[in-house]
Design a protein around this nucleic acid. Structure first.
Lengths: 207, 207
DNA sequence: CACGTTGTATCACGGCCGTGATAAATTGTT
DNA sequence: AACAATTTATCACGGCCGTGATACAACGTG
């Protein structure tokens, strides 16, 4: 077997290049040729690893979602049982976990940026529908889970409708991401965390 | 002066056609040819009323913002002095006003959809920057204004940071719009209004 | 060395795009 | 009827796109 090049590594390099192009130029201008240039590859080489544009896009978005999922699972594992932390800490831990979905550093900023573009495209491009819907469902699940845990541990004010609160917090996170990506100067990382903390504080009914 | 055709009416027809194309196919696929077809015009005719694609896009987005602004001003005028309404009604009035920004019916759904696409494009297309930023600043101003009025009329729990609450409510509205456009089944108009009502209720500190 | 797999690089095709140039049709005014 | 401004309609150019076909280089194995 000739030409010893790890295909998986190459594919990851290409996906990294694709992310850079999407962040810099937008998904609309992310053509095979642009990605190949960014990766320092010939377009023929690129097409050796990804048979079609659709395959590349699917793999890229799936990679991003996998990475995010892993990070979230690790974060959840780090926290462990919520009841083993003092009540005062619980909101902070929840905020830290949910902040994985906010563009607070360069890595997360790139993730959210790419994700927003993919989502916008998914509205009218059926090829992206499944992954986009799956991502939306995942973040909604995470939020519901966090709220449920907080509620079960008695950290929330009683009488909350968890369905409504899930939609509210999910929408808040989406909106913060959107705003932080479009207007980073007014919706800085500090402002994002302050807003998230204020929201969770409200839910807990602190004075 | 021959050929009596009201140019403004034509331009409005073209913009309507553009909106339909954007909603149906996405901004990415909204070409001059597609808009001309949708409007039942020849592409040459279209270019007689809009010299360039950029001019058409600018005019379209400006038209949408103007229409929305008018509607908001009319709504604000309808409400009048907030202190002339019973305290119980104030939250409902505020919710109704802010709901102008949510996709609760077909008209607003189209507005929000187009707006989201324009916003996504504005991130990497400098040509849309100004109008997009202006729109974001406008909605932020409206939210701040509503919160200020509620606060001044003593409807809000004291001790709120209006800066943070403005960002929070703005992000919530953006996120609701995003979610309702992408997943109308889970984020129905009823759910949207319920979330908005819950949020304002929280701010007011109702039990 | 020769072979065959794997990777790299080019070319060409058809498609859609925005746009400039230009012709043709329409219609009120002179 | 002749004119001129307005509106409608075509054509062609260059550009970027995804993709198929195909040639060429590299290299472990026989």
């Amino acid at each position: 077997m000739p030409k010893v090049v790890d295909p998986d590594a190459r594919r990851r390099e290409v996906v990294d290049a694709l992310f850079r192009v999407v962040v810099r130029d937008g998904l609309q201008r992310t053509s095979l040729r642009a990605v190949a240039d960014e990766a320092g590859l010939n377009i023929g080489s690129l097409r050796h690893y990804f048979a079609s544009q659709q395959e590349l896009m699917d793999f890229a978005m799936q990679s991003m979602l996998d990475g995010l999922t892993d990070r979230l699972l690790r974060h959840v594992e780090d926290i462990g049982d919520l009841s083993r932390h003092p009540p005062v800490e619980r909101l902070r831990l929840a905020a830290g976990l949910l902040a994985e979905l906010l563009p607070l550093d360069e890595r997360r900023r790139a993730e959210v940026t790419v994700f927003l573009d993919f989502n916008a495209a998914a509205r009218t491009n059926p090829a992206f529908r499944d992954l986009s819907d799956q991502a939306a469902a995942g973040s909604r699940r995470l939020v519901r889970r966090v709220l449920t845990r907080l509620d079960e541990s008695g950290t929330l004010r009683p009488g909350r409708d968890l369905e409504i609160e899930t939609e509210r917090l999910t929408a808040l996170l989406d909106g913060l991401g959107l705003g932080a990506v479009r207007n980073p100067d007014v919706l800085s990382p500090q402002m994002c965390t302050a807003v998230l903390a204020a929201h969770l504080g409200d839910l807990a009914g602190e004075e």
